[in-house]
Write a protein that binds this DNA or RNA. Sequence first.
DNA 1: AAAAATAGGGACAAAGCTGTCCCTATTTTG
DNA 2: CAAAATAGGGACAGCTTTGTCCCTATTTTT
Lengths: 217, 217
Amino acid sequence: MAMSEQTSKHTQVLIIEDQHLMRLALIHELQAALPASIVHGAANITIALDLLESQQFDLVVIDPGLPGYDPKSQDDRFDVVQVVIELSPDAIHFVVTGSDTEEEWEHCQKLGVVGYLAKNNIRPGALVDVLQEVAERGYSVRLSNETTAPPEFYHSGLTPREQEILGWMRQRPSGISRKEIYEQLGERFDIDAASAEKYYKRARAKLLKTGLLPKGL
Amino acid sequence: MAMSEQTSKHTQVLIIEDQHLMRLALIHELQAALPASIVHGAANITIALDLLESQQFDLVVIDPGLPGYDPKSQDDRFDVVQVVIELSPDAIHFVVTGSDTEEEWEHCQKLGVVGYLAKNNIRPGALVDVLQEVAERGYSVRLSNETTAPPEFYHSGLTPREQEILGWMRQRPSGISRKEIYEQLGERFDIDAASAEKYYKRARAKLLKTGLLPKGL
DNA sequence: AAAAATAGGGACAAAGCTGTCCCTATTTTG
DNA sequence: CAAAATAGGGACAGCTTTGTCCCTATTTTT
């Protein structure tokens, strides 16, 4: 019988978050940010504690606003964080919350948390930057931040690439030519600028065919 | 110049939610639930009001916990909902919140809301049921609910189908054979039970190759 | 012991997405 | 006006995912 290789080369990640869609989104983000990782999800503290006792993790992401704890009680919130940290002393710990405060971050930091992220300040792809910042500076904080992002527009007939390119193009500041955007996108996605242009054009064509495309073209 | 067809056959949906990942997840869910829909996202109330003034919507989903409003103030939360409803009187309105209460639902109902959903009670695919319930009964309420879901396990090498099938299989109650699960899955996804079996096996093989698969096989 | 379930594969067609290259008009900008 | 940018496509190779069908051992139930 082969020995079970508990010490695999994969990064083990645990997400503790009770909101299903948010947990799935975080899992998705973490997988994208750490391609060789295995990501576990726990919808409540009971499952989380089971997992923490059964194996080691390299990174644990905690939402302290779990059911069974009084969301208005700071003590309850810190309790969750503290217990998790005690059970995974070698891991890196992030806190993700929908109601962030400067004071809570400071308290969490004393408990050993190195990442403190407001849910409304986590954009797709942002965790890459957070992880890098933690690696460089030892911590990363993103408090709540009212965004001025443009409205989004999702049409079921578009492929992910087309959605993505279109999203970027719609944020084009005035004075910047489309061509420049194509080049930026080419660099960002590591594709040809011409391909980015192609995607944009196809997306546009699809929207025209169905009869409506957003104002900013 | 062709006349712009404002009255297209597509269902127009608007999601007002400040948490980016949650907004994207909701957009995704809505597109899956309403395949012929065009879904718009607004990260704050300003964008939302712009959109509401510029066009009509058939369904508006509101998270009243937006920045700029005191999350502890019930009045502020209701204000958001009320303003949105006044600007889209012909639409159906859902409220999605991370801090739900029975009282808030009752108040929202008086304002015209027909769907009241706690964020921790929205699972992937659940909006289909919510929409159907609204169509049949006129309203749908899903208050906060502590789940007893099993731990989740996501491995980057698996395809979405494999992840999905594996997730279902891991919830198999004792006394139910795998074969029965295959049949349920076949029905649910409208594929052959044999295909479901194939996916499970391939997922299992991949996990074995990389050295670790979760306890429950 | 016979029947059913399970593990662990192979082969393959259809479809969709990605990415590249190339083309011609028309419009905008310097 | 000349040059650059833009609109609006066609063709195509490569890849992954999906879904179906088929196969042989081994284990578990009955």
